[in-house]
Amino acid sequence: MNQLIKFGIVLALICFAATLVLAFTYEITKPKIEKGLEQEEKNALSEIMPEADSFDAKSTDGIDYFEALSSGKTIGYCIKVTGTGYNGYIRMIAGIDEKGTIKGIRVLEQYETPGLGARINEKKPGEKEPAFLKQFNGKNARALEIKKDVDAITGATISSKAVTDAVRDTTSQFLDKIKTGKTR
């Protein structure tokens, strides 16, 4: 019994020290981590819609989006899209204009296989955006279909389909919502 208490005390002390150290580390790294994520999102937004001068973060029906404004007028929407890829989720931002034409897509976070699925977000030297994502530009977001509108990456059909389906489904849902909201 005595021994048990001693074990408990030793473990508790070590855990207490560990918790203190971790709480401290968490506090000093947290602002930095959040700032990094924010910056990443900002860069993606201004890359998708360079003509917009401000972005308004909004949310409807569980979809987070940014309204892109150019001198006070809405010129399009940047929608946060999450797809289910091969190894985990793929977090993206999809930019569309008011008619639903895709202006650009940026991948923020993905865990696809390097050399295969990860190519959805790979740039060749000298390219401004990944070749796979470039295919989406100018297409109608509602009718997107893999192998018809966009070529899948060889050996990475699941990742390619995940991006296409997620962008189509979320933007369609979003566009429906916006439309009904306006007529009402």
Binding site: V10, L11, I14, C15, A18, V21, L22, T25, Y26, T29, K32, I33, G36
Partner: peptide
């Protein structure tokens, strides 16, 4: 268990700092 707690602490520190920097 003591070793694991110590190791886990350092791993979490490394993870947080890598995420930040």
């Amino acid at each position: 268990p003591c070793f694991i707690v110590v190791i886990a602490t350092f791993v979490t520190i490394a993870d947080l700092f890598m995420k930040a920097y």
